[in-house]
């Protein structure tokens, strides 16, 4: 670990597997668009699934773009949280655990949208039949604990948003939940978020693009880190060892 690098990151990216995302969210286009926008670190976070991450990681090989495997989980409280991991194995282990707690309901593409599993070129592999945008039977705390156990990083997503955001749904960050950061949505500024929810000032705030289409790859977070790992992101969130982060929207 020598040089610290400042890179733009987008830690909340959906693929065409999320029913609400555009079909253009295929691995090669995500990789190309991120790089064109000067974003060199992304996390793939589909709703309650990890099946398209491998394709994106492969598509990014040799491109200079680092891809963290992740998931946007929907817990029993109807709250969305980002679960980030270092390796695909960790993410898959989490997926297996979560999948057992998803209510078995088939997707109706006409209402919810298609759920496509694709390969690294974006080629169709299969349709995911299980409806992904449902609440798992697990609560926030036990899901947090599972992510910790697997070595992952748990970040409540778009906490300010009325739909599925932690603060409107649960009123406040649960005092017993030792979250390391919160994500605010792209539709609000840090100042406004703090005005609306003063008690979140004690948490590091990230801003997520929640990218459901290519031009929503926001890359609003700049991290100064030595390498794209969760250990480094944690140091940056805590502001330790010269690591740091800031929200810096692209102009």
């Amino acid at each position: 670990m020598g040089f610290l690098t400042t890179i733009r990151a987008e830690l909340h990216v959906h693929t065409c597997l999320s029913p609400c995302a555009e079909v253009e969210m295929i691995p090669p286009l995500i990789v190309r668009e991120a790089i064109e926008r000067g974003i060199y670190l992304i996390a793939i976070t589909d709703h309650n699934t990890t099946a398209n991450i491998e394709g994106v990681m492969k598509a990014a090989q040799g491109s200079g773009l680092a891809v963290l495997p992740g998931m946007e989980v929907q817990t029993r409280e109807e709250v969305h949280s980002l679960c980030l991991f270092d390796t695909l194995e960790q993410a898959r282990a989490f997926d297996n655990w979560l999948r057992a707690g998803l209510p078995p309901m088939k997707n109706n593409p006409d209402y919810f949208g298609e759920q496509f599993v694709v390969d690294s070129t974006g080629d169709f592999l299969r349709r995911e039949e299980q409806l992904l945008i449902l609440s798992a039977e697990y609560g926030l705390e036990e899901t947090f604990a599972k992510v910790q156990e697997l070595g992952g990083l748990f970040i409540p997503a778009h906490v300010n948003r009325t739909a599925f955001g932690l603060l409107p749904v649960l009123g406040m960050v649960p005092p017993e939940l030792p979250v390391e950061a919160l994500e605010i949505s792209r539709h609000i500024t840090v100042e406004k978020a703090l005005q609306q929810f003063p008690h979140i000032a004690r948490y590091p705030l990230l801003q997520g693009g929640d990218a459901h289409r290519l031009d929503e790859l926001l890359g609003a977070n700049k991290f100064t880190i030595a390498e794209p790992t969760l250990a480094e992101l944690r140091l940056a969130l805590a502001g330790i060892d010269g690591r740091s982060f800031r929200i810096s929207p692209r102009s």
Partner: peptide, 27 residues
């Protein structure tokens, strides 16, 4: 899930306006 996002393949009218997606262009 983003409330403002549209279902795949559906046509947009101007209330969802703003930008044109790659998928729309392809249509």
């Amino acid at each position: 899930m983003d409330q403002t996002s549209r279902f795949k393949g559906k046509i947009v009218t101007d209330q969802a306006a703003g930008n044109i997606t790659r998928s729309e262009e392809l249509a």
